[in-house]
Amino acid sequence: MNLKSLLLRRSIEILVVFGIIMTGLFLLFHAAPGDPISMMVDLTMTPEDVERMVAQLGLDQPIWIQYLYYIKNFFTGNFGTSFHYGRPVIEIISERLPNTILLFTTATILAAMAGVWLGKIIAWYKGKAIDTWTTIFALVCNTLFLPWISLLFIWFFAYWVGWFPLSGMMTPEIWVNPEAGFFAKAVDVLHHMLLPLLTLFIVNTGSYLLIMRSSMLETIKEDYILTARAKGLSEKQVRNRHAAPNALLPVVTSVGLSLAFSVNGGALTETVFSWPGIGRELIFAVSNSDYPLAMASFLFIALVVLVANLIVDILYAYLDPRISY
């Protein structure tokens, strides 16, 4: 297996896909209802002012020139100015994106580890009470409607019991206090993060557990499992050394898929928990016709999903020696 050529090939694929997404977005926004200019015009402007602004934005140019500018701007990190915030879009994105990545990768990794571990063990007790109950529980978790459970958790843990803050990501007092050290800030973020993390964890663990369990049950039927038993390995060794590594492969694929999903569905979670991430920003930007911000949010979400898939591909190739390039 040649990791370098895999990386190269996948990167090229990602570039092509990203190019298509970029072009699609451009056309979509071009055809979008509502004239971006009307958002910026105020009553004090003369028609000449407006015309000058249109020229400044390049909106009087033919579409392909506009497209070339769009590409150039992307690569120079120039996404324009947010209509709403009046700040460069790139600034807003670089504040929000890390928050989203922090929450969702942590949740996905933790949920994947827990789901894989539980699914592996449960599969070995197939048909026993522990398997039945865990499976039912996982199914319930998996079908829970995320915003509903989020609200329930907020109501119970944050409002009723009062263990966690109701929303947001940080306590302003701590962050404006010049004496607060890194540690205090980290603890504060963690405190805010626990509840959304728990919600995502519960919902995702259920689905990973179910995938791992059924994948294990398929793997157990393989001949090499019989060989492993015949060699005199203990049940635990058979499970951990021979069944689990093979059963893991479909789970890895599904983690890749669900990462893409969770960033989309993440918008909802972020909104419910007022988590200052890019998903929430996207919803906000779209509903306020903040075109530059919406466009950039879309692009960066797409980029994150593509990169996450690249990482999953590499992980898969690492786990399955049969993959060769």
Partner: peptide, 11 residues
């Protein structure tokens, strides 16, 4: 084993 082709663990 009868199915020796599959008796080895692929990973």
């Amino acid at each position: 084993f009868q199915a020796a082709m599959n008796a080895l663990n692929p990973v």
